[in-house]
Computed example of a mutant assay.
Amino acid sequence: MVNQETTKTSELVKDHEASYKKDLGYWNSTLSYLAEKDPEFFEIYKKLVATPYKNNILDAKSRELINVALSSAPTNLSTDTLRTHIENAIDQGATEKEILEVFKLVSVLGMHTCAVGVPILVEETGAFADAKLDAHQEELKEKFIQKMGYWHSFRDTLLLNDEQFFESYYQFLTNPWENDILSPKLKEFIYIAVDIATTHLFAVGTRVHIQSALRQGATFEEIMEVLKITSAQGVDTFYAGIPILRSVLAEKGNK
């Protein structure tokens, strides 16, 4: 009886694997565990994460590059899902250069420390409250706006406080925009994803990059797909938790 049940479970997991691979293009031990231990929930899980893949509003490579961005973001750093999505992105035709460009775009997220922290510091200290940019600083500001299409007042403070730091930040931010390895619209989708991710929820940046994406020709439906892909980030809980759960259970079972 036990062997029959084991065989039946194994066959069911194989069916889940085949269906999941067909829809999403990948499979791993975390998914196997869910399919085996809780097949009813697995179907719910699959329905959630597979919807953007079935809609085909975004192309397969773009979907995976957005997932690479979400997994590699400094607010997440989910190495297990990152490997899965890098492998899947390459399977969908992504190149090494394209994936590196994703990393470059996402790494600038660290500057949100200044985006949030500098205005608070100015409010609490009054520093540079009445200061005006000089001619050279105005030129740097205009150069930034011409390149990126947006500005926020915290950058005025960066300029007034440390021009060298501002220029290095500008170069770091704009380097991926000096080439066409990724399309401008996809770059904005990546920015939207990492800004609105559950682990960040940076509303100011989300609005800026939705506006920029619309200027690049993005549609409501496309941006909605980015939000759907991003909302599935919660499944990283399983990728972090299940290996630890299995390890602890194995240790307890050996005692």
Rank of each mutant, 00 (worst) to 15 (best):
N3R: 12
N3V: 11
Q4S: 05
E5A: 10
E5K: 13
T6N: 04
S10V: 03
K14G: 07
D15N: 06
K22Q: 15
D23E: 13
L24F: 02
L24I: 03
Y26Q: 07
S29N: 07
E36S: 12
D38W: 06
P39G: 08
F41G: 06
K46Q: 10
K47E: 12
Y53N: 05
L65H: 01
S71Q: 09
S71T: 11
A73W: 06
N76A: 12
N76C: 05
S78W: 08
T79W: 11
T79R: 14
T81V: 14
L82E: 10
H85E: 07
H85D: 13
D91M: 08
Q92A: 15
A94H: 01
A94S: 10
E96S: 11
E96I: 15
K97E: 15
E98K: 09
F103L: 14
K104A: 10
K104H: 08
L105H: 01
S107I: 03
G110C: 04
M111C: 09
H112T: 14
V116P: 06
G117D: 15
P119A: 12
L121E: 03
E123M: 02
T125P: 10
G126F: 00
A127E: 09
A127Y: 13
F128G: 06
L133Q: 02
D134E: 04
Q137P: 06
Q137K: 08
E138R: 02
E138N: 11
E142P: 02
F144Q: 08
Q146T: 10
K147H: 10
S153D: 12
F154E: 03
F154C: 01
R155A: 01
T157W: 00
L158K: 02
L159V: 02
E163H: 01
E163P: 03
T174R: 03
P176S: 05
W177A: 10
D180R: 01
I181M: 05
I181T: 15
L182G: 00
S183L: 14
K185G: 02
K185W: 01
L186V: 04
E188Y: 09
E188R: 10
E188Q: 12
F189H: 08
F189L: 07
F189M: 04
F189V: 05
Y191H: 15
A197G: 01
H200N: 06
G205K: 03
G205L: 04
V208W: 01
H209L: 05
H209I: 00
I210L: 11
Q216T: 02
G217K: 02
F220N: 08
E221T: 15
V226I: 12
L227K: 02
K228P: 03
Q233G: 13
T237H: 14
T237G: 15
F238R: 00
Y239I: 07
P243F: 14
P243C: 10
P243E: 13
I244S: 05
R246Q: 15
R246T: 15
S247P: 01
V248K: 14
V248S: 13
N254H: 12
N254D: 10
K255Y: 11
K255S: 14
